[in-house]
Design a protein around this nucleic acid. Structure first.
Length: 824
RNA sequence: GCGGAUAUGGCGGAACUGGCAGACGUGCAGGAUUUAGGUUCCUGUGGAGCAAUCCGUGUGGGUUCGAGUCCCACUAUCCGCACCA
């Protein structure tokens, strides 16, 4: 062992040894308890950033810790390697996306290895490889055969900058989540996955996921957005069509004073046809069509709309109410038609006020401050029903049930549940993704490619223009095929899949990464699934995590796997900040992992990142903090080097009879206890590290004493190195070897603690007067309340303190404190 | 507007079920080693005061022998959703 901490030699040396010995290979072993630890795989953008380092450092500590605790740990890594940046790079530099991607993967794999993460690289998966996307296509076909994939023409979200459509989940405040361009509406024929069929189960099973952060569960609940209500029909005066609406407030039916349709509602044109309103209505529809979602959904804007020139008839009281169109009604939610109840809905109130429509209160606020006959705002809370014929006097919650039942009995409507969740639009007009393995035949319609012909390979003779339709259309060979059913000339689908499909099942592929007969085998996934701990950023709270849950449920239903939820526990790590804001090129506050590894080594980078903040919180980067972590490693290194020298050839005596010996032993065992709990129960790596720092400080103090026990110190060193190894594995290996071990510390067992060592003969306790700390005294430990009180009061310092005080009572907490309540 | 979270020294953060607030690290000050700087080691470090002591966990109230921790009201910041009938 060198006299100084030479990380530049130590780190590559151990990385090579680990790799040569295949230390991190994992196989199924029914005799050992499995633990599937997964970190979100990266998009190979070029180089790792600090967010990656944080994510993977957290994972590696857990993986190595559990391995030492005897678990059979699956800890894989791979690449989410389809996607737009590769294609954009291709357009810019003329290289093929595959070249760019492969180069980046190589670079990032090297970096991950430089950081010493304990991945089983034999299971590496890359979504752009033919062996992966072949099974992606196979999975798509299973969805299609199950009726869960369909093609439909619909107004869709179109990103003019990415030149592709987007899923609802990928539109953030009306903008593309990738490039922030304003999303436009465009009517296109696209492939969808029927995630709405699973809405109820996706919602319901969130309750089971108690290992997930509440925040993520709430976000998914809101996204799925279940609302229970009723659908009912309004007749249209002078026409045969019925107008169907969805409402959650059927109790307010007597308060309906108008109807309003979405501008895209199919009835709009026929209802307005021939009326004097026709022109105005047409103009309004056109104006809406031109607006972006941002403009249209702005709550700040005043309500607009147009009278259609005809009337609807309220089924409960035959009241005739005017029908309007307005852009505040969305065509793709509910029925695209709404009954307007201005008295009890804020939006309707606003609309009615704007257009001078009647406001009829039907729920009594029973509040002296509110004049029911002259509402200043919609009253949305609960109350008793008024102006509602036979329902008057009923509380409105019961009213919902009563009216729904009556409507249902008369065949006028029924109970209905609606979800905000829409089907998942998965077609992308881009090249760098999995080709959708579907073929259109004039006689047979859409049919899947034969499974034995998979993969449908991405053609290489394409032009990357970044404009217009899918680049696959520019291939001269790709589109033309024979129909797999009837053999007639047919054409292939030219769009590729959203890359979120690729990442919706990669965790299953890791279990069986090189299977060329199946996507993954039941045998392997039965052993490994579900993922016991998943770690990644919150930014995936909805998209990736919801889609993966959906896929898993479909697989379960198809008998492809034995779990209904893929991720039992989820840890969402916080962002890495510098100077208070997210690291970004534009702000110029990026610290690259490369430069830190170069200057201090991977162990320091890992240690700092885990020490600076608990994992789920944001982490403020600090150069001084990095120095501190580096100093700590040096301090440990010197201590171990000295110990290795002292204990060389001498069988160390073990003795704990002195006061200092006992106290070091106490600190040692307490540290083992704390570090174990901090890692396994709370993922508080920062406090685990600080506990080990305290132990090191204690060891330094002990080492300088005159009469020290080398055996005890050697024991402390041994346990310390094992505890440090998940955090700083390279230098831990170096120290472990120097202490005379032949086998990797990765294979050593996690240290245990002796509960006996945590029991002290005497304890220092606090003496308070009226809750304020006045004195400290040392008394024997383990006394009962009464003897404890006596022992404390027997101390001369305390008798002086209590002298002349009027004691009302003592509150005693043995081994902790004594509080005297005295008269003021 | 709705939902969620957070608020503790100069800074990052500790304080498990109410029981010594500020562990650990950083920064700063001083000392030792060194020709010097750096490294390393040691000491001090919430504020006020010579001191005894007093004041201190976003603000205001409350419960309790005792509150950073529990309850009520509020403020600020961050995140998510946002015309979903």
């Amino acid at each position: 062992m060198k006299q100084y901490y030479d990380f530049k030699n130590i780190e590559p040396k151990w990385q090579q040894i680990w790799e040569k010995n295949g230390l991190f290979r994992t196989t199924e072993d029914p005799d050992r308890e499995k633990f599937y630890l997964l970190e979100m795989f990266p998009y190979p953008s070029g180089k790792l950033h600090m967010g990656h380092v944080r994510n993977y450092s957290i994972g590696d500590v857990i993986a190595r810790f559990l391995k030492m605790r005897g678990y059979n740990v699956l800890h894989p890594m791979g690449w989410d390697s389809f996607g737009l940046p590769a294609e954009n790079a291709a357009i810019k530099h003329g290289a093929h996306p595959a070249e760019w991607t492969t180069r980046n993967i190589a670079e990032m794999r090297t970096q991950l290895k430089q950081l010493g993460f304990s991945y089983d690289w034999s299971r590496e998966v890359a979504t752009y490889s033919e062996e992966y996307y072949r099974w992606m296509q196979w999975i798509f076909i299973q969805f299609f055969k199950k009726g869960l994939a369909y093609k439909k023409e619909n107004p869709v979200n179109w990103c003019p900058s990415c030149q592709t459509v987007l899923a609802n989940e990928q539109v953030v405040e009306g903008r593309c989540e990738r490039c922030s361009a304003e999303v436009k509406k465009k009517s296109l024929s696209q492939w969808y996955l029927k995630i709405t069929d699973y809405a109820d189960r996706l919602l319901e099973d969130l309750n089971k996921l108690d290992g997930w952060p509440e925040k993520v569960r709430t976000m998914q609940r809101n996204w799925i957005g279940k609302s229970e209500g009723a659908e009912l029909d309004f007749a249209i005066k002078g026409r045969t069509e019925k107008l169907r609406v969805f409402t959650t407030r059927v109790d307010t039916l007597f308060g309906v004073t108008y109807m309003v349709l979405a501008p895209e509602h199919p009835y709009v044109k026929t209802l307005a046809a021939g009326t004097i309103q026709e022109k105005k209505v047409a103009d309004y529809i056109e104006k809406c069509a031109r607006m972006t979602d941002i403009q249209r959904t702005s709550t700040a804007a005043e309500k607009t709309g147009e009278f259609l020139g005809c009337y609807a008839i309220n089924p409960v009281n035959e009241k005739e109410v005017p029908i309007y169109i307005s852009d505040y009604v969305l065509m793709d939610y509910g029925t695209g038609a709404v009954m307007g109840v201005p008295a009890h809905d804020e939006r309707d109130f606003e609309f009615a006020t704007r257009f001078g429509l009647e406001i009829i209160p039907v729920v009594d606020p029973e509040d002296p401050d509110i004049d029911v006959q002259d509402l200043k705002a919609a009253f949305v809370a609960q109350g008793n029903m008024i102006n509602s014929g036979p329902y008057n006097g009923m509380d409105n919650v019961s009213g919902i049930a009563a009216i729904t039942k009556d409507l249902s009995d008369q065949g006028l409507g029924e109970k209905m549940v609606n979800f905000r969740l829409r089907d998942w639009l998965i077609s992308r007009q881009r090249y760098w993704g999995t080709p959708i393995p579907m073929i259109f035949c004039e006689s047979c319609g859409w049919v899947p490619e034969k499974e034995e012909n998979l993969p449908v390979k991405l053609p290489t003779d394409v032009a990357f223009t970044g404009k217009g339709e899918s680049p696959l259309a520019t291939s001269t060979t790709f589109a033309h095929v024979r129909c797999p059913v009837c053999g007639k000339p047919a054409r292939r689908e030219l769009d590729t899949m959203d890359t979120f499909l690729d990442s919706s099942w990669y965790y299953l592929r890791y279990c069986d990464a090189h299977n060329d007969r199946e996507a993954f085998s039941r045998e392997k996934t039965d052993y490994w699934m579900a993922v016991d701990q998943y770690i990644g950023g919150v930014e995936h709270a909805i998209l990736h995590l919801l889609y993966s849950r959906f896929f898993t449920k479909v697989f379960y239903d198809l008998g492809l796997c034995n779990v209904e939820e893929p991720f039992t526990n989820l840890l969402t790590q916080g962002m890495v900040l510098k100077d208070g804001s997210k690291m970004s090129k534009s702000l110029g506050n990026v610290v690259s992992p490369e430069e830190i590894i170069e200057k201090y080594g991977a162990d320091t980078a890992r240690l700092f990142i885990l020490f600076a903040s608990p994992p789920e919180k944001e982490l403020e980067w600090s150069d001084a903090g990095v120095e501190g972590s580096f100093r700590f490693i040096n301090r440990v290194y010197r201590l171990v080097a000295e110990m290795a020298e002292i204990t060389k050839g001498i069988p160390p005596l073990y003795r704990t009879d002195g006061k200092d010996d006992r106290s070091l032993k106490f600190v040692l065992h307490q540290t083992v206890k704390r570090v174990t709990a901090d890692i396994s129960e709370r993922f508080n790596f920062n406090t685990a590290i600080s506990a080990m720092m305290e132990l090191v400080n204690e060891m330094y103090r002990y080492k300088e004493l005159e009469d020290i026990n080398v055996g005890l110190l050697a024991d402390a060193t041994d346990r310390l190195v094992r505890m440090l190894s998940p955090f700083i594995p390279h230098v831990a290996e170096e120290m472990w070897a120097a202490l005379g071990h032949k086998e990797s510390v990765y294979l050593a067992s996690w240290p245990t603690y002796d509960p006996e060592a945590l029991i002290l003969d005497t304890v220092e306790v606090v003496v308070q007067i009226n809750g304020k700390v006045r004195e400290h005294v040392t008394v024997p430990s383990g006394l009962d309340r009464e003897t404890f009180t006596e022992a404390v009061l027997a101390d001369p310092k305390i008798s002086v303190l209590m002298n002349g005080k009027q004691i009302i009572k003592y509150i005693a907490v043995p081994d902790k404190l004594l509080n005297a309540v005295v008269k003021a």
